[in-house]
Every structure is written in C-alpha cells, then in structure tokens.
C-alpha cells in the first residue's frame, strides 16, 4: 500500500541567543507545514506539534536547549532534513538581531 509510515528523529540545539521565540517558531511551523509527515518536537516533559506556532511556543526553549525533532510519514526523511537545517543555521537569526 502507499502509506509508508517512516519515523525518523534527530537532536537539535536551540542556538539563538533569544531562544525559540515567535519568529523562529513561525519559520519552523511554516517549514513543517510544507511536508505531509507529522512533525513533533520533544523536550524533557512535552511533545508538541511542529506545525503549530502556538504549540512550539509552549516549549519556551531558551538558548542552549536540546530538543528532539521527530518526523513520521511518507516524506519523513526530507522533512527532518529541512527542519534540521533551520536549527543548524539558527533560523538565520544573526542578520536580524536588533542591536541597541
């Protein structure tokens, strides 16, 4: 049948000094929504839907926090790769740090 349910996961670290705040949460949810797979983020106590900004914000993940990203579905590998890249690049946060 066509419904392969691959599950893949990897650890990511929140590298942005401001933590996983509204803007990266928005970027994350936008990216996650591009994929068919279910995307979930896990910390020590919670498992949340990566396609919902509201859910992602409940993690209150500060700089240095380690999270597990889990993707389940037909495009799980590609989805996990894409989400991982966002974290690896710190959501391109440096360019936009408002100084003063």
């Amino acid at each position: 049948m066509g419904s392969r349910e691959d599950m893949v996961s990897r650890e990511v670290v929140v590298g942005m000094p401001q933590g996983l705040h509204a803007r990266p949460a928005d970027q994350l949810a936008r990216e996650a929504r591009k994929w068919q797979s279910r995307i979930e983020l896990l910390n020590d106590t919670q498992r949340v839907d990566g396609k919902s900004i509201l859910e992602v914000l409940t993690l209150a993940a500060e700089a240095g926090t380690r999270l597990i990203v889990e993707a389940t579905g037909p495009d799980a590998h590609e989805a996990l790769e894409a989400i991982g890249v966002l974290f690896d690049r710190n959501f391109n946060e440096q360019e936009n740090t408002e100084g003063r």
């Binding site: 000094p17 401001q18 933590g19 996983l20 705040h21 509204a22 209150a60 993940a61 500060e62 700089a63």
Partner: peptide, 8 residues
C-alpha cells in the same frame, strides 16, 4: 529574553 519566552 528568558522573561519574554516565558510570557509567550
């Protein structure tokens, strides 16, 4: 930044 995150 921590306070802001916790408010969100």
């Amino acid at each position: 930044p921590g306070d802001h995150l916790r408010a969100l």
